[in-house]
Nucleic acid binder design. Structure first.
Length: 457
DNA sequence: GGAACTCGCCAC
DNA sequence: AAACGTGGCGAGTTCC
């Protein structure tokens, strides 16, 4: 398949820019990382002893021929679903009984909480801290940023992977990111494109309602009101803000990736709302809502169990795609029809997607790719200025829609201003297909603070 | 002893 | 008719 020369050159420039990031690298607090690893090892050993004293473990050891490995999903599954004959509520892709966090928590066996805690600490120690220590050279890690590995023409990172360091979970985030430091006297600055993928999707689907919702509205709130029957939505109250998050992460995002109402209904009610899956809801079920429980609130609105909630979400999904974002839906049909007819699709940034693809792939790849290409273009331009103006500041990492910089305080104002200009203004002049304004969120950390420390304000 | 697989989990 | 997109990576397991 052909790529235009400018597309080829774009990636060539991209590789050169990313290799400058790689050469720069990021500082690791080696003393901290080594000490934290030891501390975690002690805690893990203590918890292992505690776990092995439980009745559950003794039963497991007693009924197993070979030595029990508590970290083997296969052995754990065999014990729980075989020996103990617990009914499987969730299967893995290959049809085995799942032993992931969600599945284990559902069993309600308190001893398993110890095991989950051990696994969480091991993950942090062995996947992150260990990798930093292993990969560092003279206290600096040089993560690779690849452009040749991903189906969507996004990038990836390895050795160590700097694109999946814990962020959402406060405890593990702090343990891992505390190890990452700016150069002495410098400060971290992060520039994140706001809602990049969905904005880029508008450049394909030209849906005016979606564009309006992104720029002026609050679609998570609007949909939360419909999903949970909230007449007087108030962002400040805990109940409403939880249900807004539930809607965002349990409905909006999955829907944009091609999920459907049945999964979303489970996500929303069982996942976020803590409502039971397999029986009628009671008024005492579910998370704390405004004055009572979510269960009571939904029951009073005629939704009494997962089945009726699923039917409700089906209606919402229909509204979402066939009424509210009907032009997006029309684009999906046109785009899918085109792929089926000619066998490939070309993205706004000039990349060809070919070969056997599912419908969701055809609809997602070009959007995901083009969104990342906005970031890549900004990185290329940013590094050009960095070199030309001989900045002491450096671009040091990228995470799909975000740039991480190691900035000298004297240059802070100029660097942030320049990067914002590149990311929001220059880019829309360069690519006329960008028909939606782009915006960035800037997080400025304090001088010498680690990546775990809170940014200013 | 390594390749290829599964499972689980971190990010966007 | 079917049903969530992209990665990296550690550990366990199976196969050769």
């Amino acid at each position: 398949m052909f790529f235009e020369l400018k597309t080829y050159k774009f990636f060539q420039e991209g590789i050169l820019a990313l290799s400058r990031m790689e050469q720069q690298g990021l500082r690791i607090d080696m003393k901290y990382a080594e000490e934290k690893k030891l501390e975690l090892t002690k805690e893990i050993e203590k918890l292992e002893v505690e776990f092995k004293e439980t009745k559950l473990y003794k039963h497991w050891a007693h009924t197993t021929k070979n030595k029990v490995n508590i970290y083997s999903p296969q052995q754990l599954g065999a014990f729980l679903y075989g020996t103990k004959k617990i009914k499987i509520s969730k299967e893995t892709a290959s049809g085995q009984g799942a032993t992931n966090e969600e599945a284990l928590q559902e069993l309600g066996i308190p001893e398993l909480d110890i095991l989950l805690r051990i696994k969480k600490l091991k993950k942090v120690r062995d996947t992150y801290l260990d990798a930093f220590v292993r990969e560092q050279v003279n206290g600096i890690v040089h993560p690779f940023f690849n452009l040749h590995l991903v189906r969507t023409f996004r990038g990836s990172s390895d050795s160590p992977n700097f694109q999946n360091i814990p962020k959402r979970d406060k405890e593990t985030m702090e343990i891992c990111r505390r190890a990452i430091l700016p150069r002495p006297g410098h400060q971290f600055v992060e520039l994140d494109y706001k809602q990049l993928e969905v904005r880029i999707s508008c450049c394909y689907n030209r849906d005016e309602q979606l564009k309006e919702d992104i720029l002026a509205g609050d679609m998570h709130k609007e949909m939360a009101i419909r999903i949970f029957h909230i007449e007087d939505f108030n962002k400040e109250t805990t109940g409403h803000s939880v249900l807004r998050s539930a809607t965002k992460n349990g409905f909006i995002f999955p829907q944009f990736y091609g999920d459907y109402y049945k999964n979303c209904a489970v996500n929303l009610s069982y996942g976020w709302g803590h409502l039971p899956k397999n029986r009628k809801w009671k008024s005492t079920d579910g998370i704390e809502f405004e004055d009572g429980k979510l269960g009571a609130h939904l029951i009073s609105n005629g939704i009494k169990d997962l089945e009726s909630f699923t039917q409700h979400i089906k209606v919402i999904e229909d509204y979402f795609w066939n009424v509210r974002y009907k032009d997006y839906t029309k684009w999906k049909e046109r785009w899918w029809e085109q792929y089926q007819r000619v066998g490939h699709i070309t993205s706004m940034t000039g990349f060809n997607y070919q070969g056997v693809m599912k419908k969701n792939d055809v609809l997602n790849y070009p959007i995901q790719g083009s969104a990342f290409h906005c970031l890549l273009w900004s990185i290329i331009q940013g590094i050009k200025v960095q070199v030309k103006e001989k900045w002491k500041s450096r671009l040091v990492s990228q995470i799909h829609d975000a740039i991480v910089m190691d900035v000298h305080p004297d240059e802070l104002e100029h660097v942030v201003k320049t990067m914002k200009r590149i990311m929001c203004e220059d880019i829309v002049k360069h690519w006329s297909w960008i028909t939606v304004p782009l915006d960035v969120d800037v997080e400025i950390h304090n001088v010498n603070d680690s990546w775990a420390d809170k940014p200013q304000r």
